[in-house]
Design a protein around this nucleic acid. Structure first.
Lengths: 127, 127
DNA sequence: CATTCTGTTCTAATATCATTATAACAGTAA
DNA sequence: TTACTGTTATAATGATATTAGAACAGAATG
């Protein structure tokens, strides 16, 4: 499990962790029905508190990305074949919009924005 | 100035404000060399504290989107003709990556992601 | 020149969030 | 039965976010 936490980042540790787990799933490095490490073991590996990891896992569960089985562990849900739900789509757009607006203000045009988006997708899916 | 603040949002007020100002600039609703309202008047309009607006303005100044002239006011910088600086580009990518990874996990493919990105750009630039 | 407006700075209080630390509990797996 | 699991509870600490009030000094305006 290749995860790197930066304790001094302005991004909360549990968010960094959730984001990196999402990237690992998106890349295929972790696959559906596989189990995530226990909150205690991952916390020990990363040098953070158990509750911090637990919080990250519950964030992923809220997004329907993993399923937490009480007193047992967490397993990864399969990637939706139907695409995102309306709610998922709305949240993605909500967070995407300010970033795109910022890109425009920085002087990027439509082609440039689509180009870096495309390159990030390749970066994730092709490693 | 069409700005809507949701006090109960999990997104801090100063971030909501900064984001909406960025969108107004990206859309052309506010143009370069125009002055932003004073922190006191905008705070009164929005029903928030002066310091909250001041914080939003300084966020925009850190991003080189506006220039704050001490004891005078804030004016909007012109959109960069050279495109983003390396630092600006890196930050955009850093924040874009987890969103794109999340989209992939939700079952979106490359074309769908590029499609909604394109639609958001149109939404911003064409109103 | 005097008034008003401006951002700046300071202190202060409150609320929320993030993180860590222990500890105990109850279900699961070996 | 033993070890491991997520759950829950309490507590403390530090950082943020927000509001409030006040004073200061430069800028704009009449």
């Amino acid at each position: 499990m290749f995860i790197q936490i930066e304790p001094t980042s302005e991004i909360p540790i549990y968010t960094q962790l959730a984001n990196q787990l999402i990237e690992l799933i998106a890349s295929g490095a972790i696959k559906a029905s596989e189990a995530l490490p226990s909150v205690r073991s991952l916390a020990a590996d990363l040098g953070v508190n158990m509750h911090t990891v637990n919080k990250a896992y519950h964030e992923l569960e809220k997004k329907n990305i993993i399923e937490i089985i009480p007193k047992s562990g967490a397993i990864i849900n399969s990637i939706s074949a139907n695409g995102p739900t309306d709610m998922q789509m709305d949240l993605i757009k909500l967070h995407l919009k300010p970033l795109i607006a910022e890109s425009i203000v920085y002087g990027m045009d439509k082609e440039q924005i689509l180009s870096i988006t495309s390159s990030i997708i390749s970066e994730i899916t092709e490693g």
